[in-house]
């Protein structure tokens, strides 16, 4: 089980960074550029780990990135990778969807704690924007999750995943899927919902004081965490995957859509994004919930 979990984390780390590299490449192509090499994100993170010093604001600042990392890793370990496989399941038999939904909030919390302790007002502004966005962001995703849980009469991710043999939830519950997908775009931190670290508005937002190894941990956890979110979407709506290849294909498709949407939309303000999320995807998902 330990090795299994380690393998899950390693895979998520590698795929997360590869996807991030792809994201930069695809964005570059959309802009008409060549973009950096695929491994550029690895280089960045390794370089940050190798910085000779990094600024420290006290023990809570130390603990903040660690809590973020815990949030990402625990979320990942409670989501099984493959459908019906004995490997790469992590601790998923000890958890369920509600637990995962709550573990996903741990990362913003760790972020908030670490950034609050450094006393930079820009960081806290970013955090407040993030937590405000979370109000709108979680609503459609929760509705979709509730719909799926009621439809499958279980909150077990594995059960929801295997119950899709006749048809993917994305097609049997399309409205729920649309609602959850818009919310997922926000979870990935892409435009138009990237209000948290908007450099034009709040300096660098939450990351303002993160440097060196702290920033490296923040980057790594965000790579792991975004892969976990992709995984959750695939498991809930696209029927999971039988093999790693299928998993990569499905997550990549989802990721590609998110990237392309992010590249063509301008950013909402915080209030706009909450209002949009509460109106449009929530409305869609609620209609979907009525059909369930």
């Amino acid at each position: 089980m330990f090795l299994d979990s380690l393998a899950m984390i390693a895979l998520a780390y590698i795929f997360g960074f590869l996807y991030y590299g792809l994201y930069r490449n695809i964005s570059a192509r959309v802009h008409g550029r060549f973009g950096p090499s695929l491994a550029q994100s690895f280089f960045d993170s390794i370089k940050l780990f190798l910085k000779e010093n990094s600024t420290n604001f006290g023990w809570m600042f130390y603990a903040g990135p660690i809590i973020m990392m815990i949030g990402a890793i625990t979320t990942l370990l409670f989501i099984p990778y493959l459908n019906g496989s004995e490997h790469l399941v992590g601790l998923s038999q000890y958890g369920n969807l509600i637990l995962v939904l709550y573990l996903m909030v741990l990362e913003p919390l760790g972020n908030a704690m670490g950034i609050g302790s450094n006393g930079n007002p820009f960081g806290v502004m970013g955090i407040t924007r993030g937590l405000t966005r979370l109000i709108g962001l979680e609503l459609p995703f929760y509705i979709a999750a509730i719909g799926l849980m009621i439809a499958n009469h279980s909150a077990d991710i594995g059960v929801i995943m295997t119950n899709q043999s006749e048809g993917y939830n994305a097609f049997t519950h399309p409205l729920l899927f649309i609602g959850a997908f818009i919310s997922f775009l926000g979870f990935m931190g892409k435009s138009p919902f990237d209000v948290v670290g908007a450099p034009q508005e709040v300096y660098s937002g939450p990351a303002t004081e993160f440097s060196g190894k702290f920033f490296a941990i923040a980057l790594s956890q965000s790579a792991i965490f975004s892969f976990a979110k992709l995984l959750l979407m695939v498991n809930l709506f696209l029927g999971g995957a039988q093999s790693l290849v299928e998993l990569v294909a499905k997550t990549f498709v989802l990721f590609l859509v998110a990237v392309l949407v992010g590249n063509v939309y301008a950013r909402f303000t915080t209030a706009q994004s909450v209002e949009f999320l509460v109106r449009v995807p929530t409305g869609i998902a609620l209609v979907g919930l009525l059909f369930v």
Binding site: L50, F57, G212
Partner: peptide
């Protein structure tokens, strides 16, 4: 992770002044 962080090559330099923030 604590073990990983503390054993890293990068030294954590504590700021002396609470107002030493990037502003």
């Amino acid at each position: 992770i604590l073990l990983l962080v503390t054993s890293m090559r990068s030294k954590a330099v504590k700021v002396r002044d609470r107002y030493d923030i990037s502003y």
